[in-house]
Every structure is written in C-alpha cells, then in structure tokens.
Design a protein around this nucleic acid. Sequence first.
DNA 1: AGTCAAAATGTAAGCGCTTACACTTTGAAT
DNA 2: ATTCAAAGTGTAAGCGCTTACATTTTGACT
Lengths: 341, 341
Amino acid sequence: MQLPTLEDVARKSGVSTATVSRALNDPTRVSKKTRERVEAMVAALGYTPNFGARALASNRTNTIGAVIPTMENAIFAQGLQALQEELGEAGVTLLVATSNYDPEKEAQQVRTLLGRGVDGVALIGEARGVEIYELLERRGVPFVLMWTWRRDCPWPCVGFDNRAAARRLTERVLELGHRNIAMIAGVTHGNDRAEMRVCGVRDAIRAAGLPLEDKRIIEVEYSLDASAAAAKRLLAHDRKPTTIICGNDVLAAGAMIGIRELGLNVPNDVSVTGFDDIELSLVLDPPLTTIHVPHRRMGQSAAQLLLLLCAGEDNVTRVNFEPDLVERKSLVAINEGGRIR
Amino acid sequence: MQLPTLEDVARKSGVSTATVSRALNDPTRVSKKTRERVEAMVAALGYTPNFGARALASNRTNTIGAVIPTMENAIFAQGLQALQEELGEAGVTLLVATSNYDPEKEAQQVRTLLGRGVDGVALIGEARGVEIYELLERRGVPFVLMWTWRRDCPWPCVGFDNRAAARRLTERVLELGHRNIAMIAGVTHGNDRAEMRVCGVRDAIRAAGLPLEDKRIIEVEYSLDASAAAAKRLLAHDRKPTTIICGNDVLAAGAMIGIRELGLNVPNDVSVTGFDDIELSLVLDPPLTTIHVPHRRMGQSAAQLLLLLCAGEDNVTRVNFEPDLVERKSLVAINEGGRIR
DNA sequence: AGTCAAAATGTAAGCGCTTACACTTTGAAT
DNA sequence: ATTCAAAGTGTAAGCGCTTACATTTTGACT
C-alpha cells in the first residue's frame, strides 16, 4: 500500500504542494481558510510527512544525536531522559549511541550520527581526540559537552566542576577527622570526569598538608565486582583506610559489597562516599553520602542550549551547576582513638 | 562548506553515480578495480552518504525504533543495550523513545517513529490499544514485542512467561513454609508484565489451597518511595506477612527501605523477593532473591528477529526464554513457630 | 473606483541518492 | 576465430519534500 504524499493532500484540497508545505510548517503564512482545509485533508488521508524527503529538501533532520558511554548503569539515564523530554517538546528527536568508554568507538559513533544528518550533538565530558572536534566544526554541526564544566573550556558545556565537587567532599571527610584516606576511581584514561574527581581529592588532601599516596588510589572500570575487589585490596593494607572515597555511586556500592564480604561494617569500620547521587545511593545500607548532581536540570539545560545553537545562536555558552554534598549515613566522624565514632 | 556528494565521487573517479552507489552498497556487483578506485576516492574526499537522500530513494532507513516505558530505572537498560549492539553490527541504528508507562504516549511515540520512517519497531509487552497494532500492520512495518511471551500470542514476541516465573517463585516461597504472603505489584493497567506477575503469584497461592486476599496486594508505581510506603502499610496489618513478593527489583529495594525504616530486619522479620535481577539486587543487603531474566540474550534475539522480519521473513515467531530463580539471602525458610528461620 | 503594498498562493527547480533498463565488456566454450 | 551468457557499467527517471521567485488576491487607503 502506498502512503499518501504531500501531493495527494494538495490535489485533494485544491491547492499547490507549496501551500500544503507551508500550512504544515509555518501555518501563519497561509490563510485561515486554506489552513483548515489542508488540515482536514491531512487528517482524512492520515498523511505523515516523509522524513527522508524532508531531510533531503530542507537539509535539516530535527534530530539531535548523543553519545554516552553506556546505558547499563543509571548514571546517564536521568540526564538523558530529561534531555529527550525537553527536545521532544520542540519536536526534535534524540538519537542515542553508546561508546562503552572507548574513545575510538565514540569517534565512530559521532561519524555515524553525522552520517544520519543530526542537526546537533551532545557529548559526555571534554576528553577526546581533537579530530572529533574538528570534524564537528568542519561540518558546522553544533554540539555541547555535558557532565563537565571548566571556566575556560573552549566549547559549549553544561555541567559542573567535578574537581571542585570532589575537593569539597574530601574536605568534609578531612573535617570529620579522617587522615587515612583511600580512593577507588573510575578509569581516568579518556574520562575527564573521573580524572578531575581524582584531582579534586588530591587537591584537598594536599591542601591539608597530608601525604598523598599513589597506591591508595586504585582505578577500576565501573563495575560492582571490580570495585569490591579494589576495596578488599585497600583494606588488606597494613594501615587500613578509615574512608574510601569512590569515583561514583556504582563504585561505592561495589566497595560496600567488598567491605561486607570482609566482615567489616560501613560506617563503623570504614566510611564510604559516592558521587552522582543516583537512586542507587538510597537503597544502599547505610544510605550513601555522596555528591548530588542535578541530572535532570543538566539535561534540560543542555537541550535548550543545543536548540539555540541549532537555531544559529553561536556564542559559546557554558552552564555551571553547583552540585551539593548530601550527607547520609555512610560517612561518619572519626573519634580520638583513630577508630571511627 | 558543501559536503561531497555521490556525484563528486563518481566524477573524480571517472565512473557513473550508479557504479559508485553499487560499489558502496553491494561491492560484489562491481569489479575489484573500480571498487578500489571508488573506495580510495571516498576516503580522499571524506564522503559520507546523505541519509535523507538514501532513505528517500531506497525507501529504507536502516533504523529500528523502540518504545520503552522509561530509561530511568535499569530494567530495560541491559536489554536495550544488547538490542542496540546487535543491530549495530548489521549497520542498523536504534532509535529509542519513552512512554512513561502511558499507553497514549506510547501510541504517539510509535507514530513519531513511523514518521521517521523506521524499518521496524520493538515494543515492550503486549497490552496496548489495538489501533497501534493496526497502524503498524497497515504500514507494513514489522515489529516484535519484548519482555513478554505467551504461547498463543498473535504477534512476534521475544521474552518469557511472566506468569509462570512468578508462579514458580511463589511456589518456592510456599515451600519454605510461608503462609502469610503479601505482594507489592507494579501498576497493572496497561502493563501485562505486571499483571501476569500478579496472576502467577495468585495461581500459586490458590493452588496451595490458601485464601488470596486482595488487600494484601498493593499496586504502586515503580518508585522506591511508593514501594517503601506500601511495605509499611502491609506491615501495619495485624497479621504481618512473613514474605513480601515484589513485582520487580526496584519495588523490592523500596520495600526493603520501608522495612528498614520500621526497624525490622530482612530476612529475619520478613522475607522479600524481587523480579528481573538487575544489578541493583546484588547491592542490596541482604542480596535479593529474585527471578533472573536474561536481558542481554533477549535483546540480541529480538534484534535478530527484527532484522529477519525487515528482510521479508514474515512468519510469526515467538522466542521463549526460561528465567531462573536465583536464591540469595532475602528469602529464608520459616520455622515452626511461625517466626522466620 | 483606483492605487499599491502586503498577504496568499502557485510554479518549478532542485536536494542526493537508488535502481530499472539498456548497453558494453569479458572470457569460457565451441 | 566465433559465440554468447555473465559480469560490469552507464543513463536517466524518479523518491517526496522545501523554497526562491513569480504571480495573483486582498483590503486599507485615497
């Protein structure tokens, strides 16, 4: 069966295809009478514009592409959902691709998205080969970086200062009397958020005049198993850490599993902190002290910025959110004896 | 700047556009010599096919659309990721839309996807207005239902028997001596998976000759808060349930939060079971006894089926996975006194 | 009634690709 | 050498839409 075309609508409502096109895309440019006639005919025929033809003729697809590392853990889910909803209200569709934290794969996904003619692109973080940025700029396709922010970032970004937030968290840990701190970080290669979080922790420890010991920072992939193993390794150390700062909530959850398997208790034997404040942090026992990231607002804001950029606005904008430290039960003060509470 | 077109490639490599098109889409139909020349020219110019033009001319988009309820909890993440990866290997892109468990929104999203010319559609579950099925069939767009399976389902589906699995789980609960069972279910309206899980629980209880009490089954939206509240309500009952069977892992996590807030202990005071076996179930303390659903295999299988259907294969296929009961620590046997363990 | 800018509409040329069909070349079999 | 199917290539007609430009209609003023 053949779908009705613009021309069918035009013929049956006694106007030209141009008028139908206008009635659909910019109703103000058409008299009320024709508009209504056309709309009625569209409904009667069940006409839907052909996406490919429209894209070909107008050179726009009303599609934004996003490349995220993974959908499998919830870190990006909320933000993406919000991005999608916000774009949806403007009639723009979101195309999501995943890179599995592999820069090469990310580049390939960006190329695929460009091949599909996306009008704009959302990327996570700043760290990637310069060729992607060049490609995007050469093609004139606007993009924004999400989940990251830096004062002098040369590109539009919507996020927060991972380094400052990690530093703030660590300062709180220090304030609670911890002097023996370890960290389970995400893999920092090609991941500036992970890297900046490590830097932030280092900043705070150094500022406190404490030594920073490289072996107390373990980098692992974002999985429960890897993090649980890392926690066990850290706690096998002769001088056990009193706090394990984790690169994100998933790592914190993994660390808590590892700690539990060692027969130790959080927070009595060791404190744990997370980062991101995904739903997970509430189901953990004890609930996780973590950095709350405003995922939804970030997604919305990124959508708006992207729409602006697509509309031709072209000054680089940066949106900086201020993540909060939410203190729950997984981090407690240390007492005089060096044991916790 | 103007992007290179097929014609540019053709001109510069001294062949016709038809030959270039063939060299790109079906290399075997072109001599080795020309193929190599064309490929070199493509690389040199950085040519990428124009998606819209291709879609318009060939009437295919190499895109599959999926409508899922939400990305915000991880239930669908793994399955979708697998679906996407499998499609990706066939050069097909996945377009994901969300309905937020709203049938009306789902219908609208399907229409949007069709408007974008998707070659096939993946939907979650079977329960929806007949008009969506009609629309899909009228358009001749193949689709598969995921996360659900029924012997006499009239449409292609890739999933498992939610009812049987829920029944199996409940039988195990009964086998462990529980006689006083409550359930926190997902909202069943427009959600056959949730509904079938309730049915399965009922089946088992009825088969055991026990009374089934409607008030012991509470339907809530899939959120931690709602489930925690429901658990509290159930436990405020004069005859406390010894097990709370939850419609999925998220609800189980919420129930455990509620139970904890009541100062009770899982599983000593009350057992809890989940359904889905998402990563969450491992981070809970105690780890959750739940039904393991093979999300990844389901996604892969759905992708393969969809690709077949798009290729013209048109006999209705149903793929049934056998979910396992994984027993962890949140469900324990009841002792003689009626108290647990 | 006449004027004329503004509003509404029509005409038709593409957008970049695929593919039916026609034509040419190739090379194995005679 | 000749033949002829198979393999390779070219020609050109769309696919369904947008939009620059041309033309007609409208209606607020004289």
